[in-house]
Amino acid sequence: MSKMKNLELKQISYQELLIEVQEVYELIHKLTNSYVEITSYVSTSLIPYLSFVCDGLDYFHAGTSKVHSSWYNDIEGNSVQELIKENRSALKLYSEYKRNKVIPKLEDDTVLFNELLFGNYNLIQKAYIKLFGQHDLGIYFFKEIDYANTYQLFKNIKTLYSDNKGIIGPVMKEFGIVLANYISKANIYPVSKTPNKIFSLTDNFTHQDVYFKDSKRFDAFNSTEDKYWLLFLYNYYCQNNFIRNIFPVVLGVRGNFYYRMKFCTYLLSIKGLDLLAKKVPKITEEYSDINELINARETIVPIKSDLRNNLFHYNVVNIPYEAFDGKGNFFKQMIEYSVMKSFEEFDNQIDQELNKYQKLISQILF
């Protein structure tokens, strides 16, 4: 491809990023105009997604006078750019590790998470925890759908927590403000005329400290290896529910950013399932659907497909410039060129596979 075509393709990539920046900016705008209770229920879950967009902006704005993470002061010794990259990677939920590294990482983070949970306990409470362990796991529900859990959310703040154990609240708030400010300054489009307030009822949201798996009194902090895998799967289960329910229903995110995140979390979920099948092969004997889901992924988005890279990064590669007509939806045109089918057909296929995945994980866990 000629240098001119590469430049034009990069311009299309950047234009698509700015379209998605607007979606996320409107999301933030809705949150700031809504009930504090609802904001508190979803704000921590949003940090990796905001970081995802900011990381894309960092890539395109490097070396320019446009807003960049280097505009912002370090947060308690952590550069904003590094925090953005760390929190963006939180979406992967350990799927970036090789199968022999996943359990040790889960173990290390669980120790930190457990420490956070009872960090403010008194001596008697800590003695009890030392004897009997920490059994509670906080789970967030929207209309009885579990869309987040405190372990998953801890992964979003782990980098900040490790160096700032005593002041994690203020540090998290500062980082969230920086992300919102970054996106606000990068947005070039006016707020649309759609409602700019969240209308979901606060009663739709609930939070409970419960045993992770009531039927078997599952202890999320037990060192038994297979229980770490259950928690590993549950994180994907919650993440999928967040993207498929909180984004479109509560936050009104139904554009390209919503589809990008849904497709990304599908690929991450199946990669995690593949890790599980290789690490704990006996589970595929009990749940044969695991191999079916993994094999289906290869027909939908092959592991070596350029589409995967183009979904996780805003710089589109290995697609001819002519695949974009300059008038339609660039994101949908990228999908259609890559999979050789209509966007609607591809989206329906992903939804069907995610439905199967969520049903399977529910069977394994509950």
Rank of each mutant, 00 (worst) to 15 (best):
K5W: 12
Y14F: 15
I19V: 14
Q22E: 13
E23R: 00
L27E: 07
T32N: 11
T39G: 08
Y41Q: 09
S43W: 04
S51D: 01
D58F: 12
F60R: 02
F60K: 02
T64Y: 14
I75A: 06
G77V: 08
G77K: 04
E82M: 10
I84W: 03
E86V: 00
R88E: 00
S89Y: 01
K98Q: 12
N100R: 06
I103E: 13
E107N: 03
D109Q: 08
I124S: 09
K130N: 12
H135V: 12
D136Y: 12
I139C: 14
Y140R: 05
K143P: 03
D146Q: 06
Y147E: 05
N149W: 10
N149D: 11
T150E: 15
N156R: 00
I157T: 00
K158Q: 14
N164K: 03
N181Y: 05
S184P: 01
S184Y: 15
S184K: 15
Y189N: 11
Y189Q: 06
P190Y: 08
S192W: 13
K193A: 06
F205E: 10
H207E: 05
F212W: 12
K216N: 08
F218W: 14
T224M: 07
E225K: 04
Y236I: 02
N245F: 14
V250M: 06
R254D: 05
R254G: 00
F263K: 00
I270W: 12
I270T: 04
K271M: 05
L273E: 04
D274E: 14
D274C: 04
K278L: 15
K279M: 02
T284V: 15
E285R: 04
E285K: 05
N291L: 14
I300E: 07
I303A: 09
I303F: 14
K304M: 15
S305K: 08
L307D: 05
L311H: 05
N315M: 08
P320C: 08
Y321M: 08
D325L: 06
K327H: 10
G328L: 07
K332H: 12
K332Q: 15
D351R: 03
L360H: 03
I361M: 03
I364T: 06
